[in-house]
Design a protein around this nucleic acid. Structure first.
Length: 561
RNA sequence: AGGGGUGUAGCCAAGUUGGUAAGGCAACGGGUUUUGGUCCCGUCAUUCGUGGGUUCAAGUCCUCCCGCCCCUGCCA
């Protein structure tokens, strides 16, 4: 039922959910496992959903069960087909295939019938209080609620009213259908929860067929039950709703699906609230849901994050009931770990400094074969041109080199990766003292990057032949990081104000010709710079790269100290 | 007359019926390396929110206290 590479992803460790399911199976409480991933199509999927996807589909796979994709589309005001389409695409991209594609809206007729059944059983009534009255009469955390004056309506009156609600004979908000439970319940969810409201809105799937829509608490449990979901996994904030979930299914004598809650995912300095993500898109702080800086699945896909890395991440963070905030470095680690063995290498220079090899013949070009991935030589080679004038990274040269600086300095010999040893002989400057070029000599004996006398050099530089350089555009985008916890910003600030400005930097760069063959969506490692993914925005003249992940940089760390 | 959850290292997170604190990330040291990448080796909880108690033995059992999260939508 799935396409997950089990080689890369061994069985997940046993968390409390898997332990519970194993237990249920051993006790023969179920013949098999049936789960579901139930997003509301009111936004794009993000990393938090990835955790739920991996859990629900993963568990089904591990126990030879099935997992449905179900759209919880009961609020037409917020939902759209665009979101449905994006969710289907993102789940597939994550590497999972659903058993059935379901929609709560497909159950509207059945849901309505169950509502009438509740009325006939004397367990639901039509309330005609205003929204404010309902709120007031619900009581508070420490004060019990009071019964609605309409609570004692007869079954006949309730049925008549409810049918008129459906027929569109009342204005929005005039009445609601409520479960008759207990206005003094300690659990506020149980104080006669609203089951149906009148809402004249066009639904993206049912159009104007309905003017009443069921609410989550009534819909979700019944949907689970109709699909024979054995294990309904959801996040912790629904724990209070479990009592009502069970009440509805028991009252209607339906298949006893069971809800189990787990802690939602938080990642340091990362926005994972759908409300905030919608705000970023609507206020145009980003180009769209798939902006490469977005922590959405579509954004990360565009940034070059492989789905394998996300699955690995979800497995490593585990599943538990304690609130948690995972360090972003774990996600980066998972991305790097996957890309290290899969991404081809290329050389690029972000801030070019001209280097002239004075004893190299003018007009001569040599082609060197460099490994595509050094740790997997079988993956082949890339052909890189070398000539008299090349570009190196400006920060790879220091006139007054600190002691642990292994790179180029006056009089210093270093290696140009896979090409030659060079020695810096002179520094050219303009009238302002800015370095304009470096004059070097090369050792013809060191062709390929080694010498007959086995002379060692400490540094290896990356380079691009000046006459062959390919101009590219590089977006040094990161996640749209906030400076700290996005859900807890300083007084008087919006989380928007705390977005890291570094996530906006775009630079022009020069690359070796390897990138010319790259197609959008393909990721390379620009050696020592990081992983970069070719963007769909690219043109034949200008390839645009989004930074997928950085590399560890021990020199930068050391220098900072 | 509140209810429901939860606390194990900087961050995640395992810890069977009580038997002497897994693993990963991060960090730090060292080795290998034609990427200051990768890889390899090593260090990193005398203690599990706090105080009592039971026990030969407590992260696990009992109990007091404390912290944090969720719930008063006709959102999900």
């Amino acid at each position: 039922m799935n396409t997950v590479d089990t080689e890369l992803h061994p069985a997940a460790p046993k968390d409390f959910i898997r332990a519970m399911i194993e237990n249920d199976l051993n006790a023969r409480r179920h013949a098999g496992v049936q789960t579901r991933f139930p997003p509301e199509p009111n936004g794009y999927l993000h990393l938090g959903h990835a955790k739920s996807i991996c859990l629900n589909f993963g568990v089904a796979q591990e126990f030879s069960g099935a997992c449905n994709l179900r759209f919880d589309d009961t609020n037409p005001l917020k939902e759209s087909q665009e979101y449905v389409d994006s969710i289907r695409k993102d789940v597939r991209w994550m590497g999972f295939t659903w058993t059935n594609e379901c929609y709560a809206s497909d159950y509207f007729e059945q849901l309505y019938a169950f509502a009438e059944a509740l009325i006939f059983a004397g367990k639901a009534y039509v309330d005609s209080q205003t929204m404010e009255e309902i709120r007031t009469n619900r009581g508070t955390l420490t004060k019990v609620g009071v019964d609605s004056p309409y609570r004692t309506r007869s079954v006949e009156e309730n049925i008549a009213l409810f049918r008129q609600m459906r027929d569109g004979q009342f204005a929005d908000g005039a009445h609601v259908l409520r479960a008759k439970i207990d206005m003094a319940a300690a659990n506020i969810v149980m104080r006669d929860p609203t089951l149906y409201r009148i809402r004249r809105a066009t639904h993206h799937r049912t159009g104007n067929t309905w003017c009443i829509y069921p609410l989550y608490d009534f819909t979700h449990c019944i949907s689970d039950s109709l699909e024979k979901i054995t294990h309904s996994l959801c996040t912790l904030e629904f724990a209070n709703n479990r009592e009502l979930y069970d009440w509805v299914l028991e009252s209607l004598n339906l298949f006893p699906s069971r809800q189990t809650e787990f802690a939602r995912l938080s990642i340091t300095r990362t926005i994972l609230s759908k409300r905030k993500l919608i705000q970023l898109v609507e206020e145009k702080h980003v180009a769209g849901w798939d902006d490469p800086r977005m922590p959405t699945l579509s954004g990360m896909r565009r940034r070059g994050v492989p789905p394998e890395a996300l699955r690995d991440f979800c497995q490593r963070i585990g599943v538990a009931r304690a609130e948690n905030t995972v360090d972003f470095s774990l996600l980066e680690f998972c991305i790097r770990e996957h890309l290290n063995t899969t991404a081809p290498r290329a050389m690029a220079v972000l801030d070019p400094l001209k280097l002239i090899i004075e004893n190299y013949p003018e007009g001569q070009v040599e082609w060197f074969d460099l490994p595509l991935t050094p740790d997997a030589p079988e993956k082949g080679v890339r052909r890189i041109p070398f000539s008299r004038e090349i570009w190196i990274e400006r920060e790879d040269f220091r006139e007054d080199a600190p002691k642990k600086f292994f790179r180029l300095a006056p009089g210093q010999e270093v290696r140009l990766r896979c090409a030659y040893y060079i020695t810096c002989k002179a520094v050219q400057k303009d009238e302002n003292g800015n370095i304009t070029a470096l004059v070097c000599t090369y050792d013809p004996q060191s062709r390929g990057g080694g010498t007959p006398d086995n002379r060692k050099v400490k540094g290896t530089l990356h380079w691009v032949s000046a006459s062959h350089a390919t101009p590219i555009t590089v977006r040094l985008y990161d996640h749209l990081f906030t400076q700290d916890d996005p859900d807890n910003v300083p007084d008087g600030q919006s989380f928007i104000d705390t977005i890291n400005p570094a996530s906006l930097v775009t630079v022009s760069a020069l690359s070796d010709p390897t990138v010319a063959a790259l197609k959008p969506g393909e990721t390379v490692q620009f050696e020592r710079l990081g992983y970069f993914c070719a963007d769909a925005d690219s043109t034949p003249e200008d390839t645009v790269f989004n930074r997928t992940a950085t590399l560890k940089d021990t020199w930068a760390k050391m220098e900072k100290r």
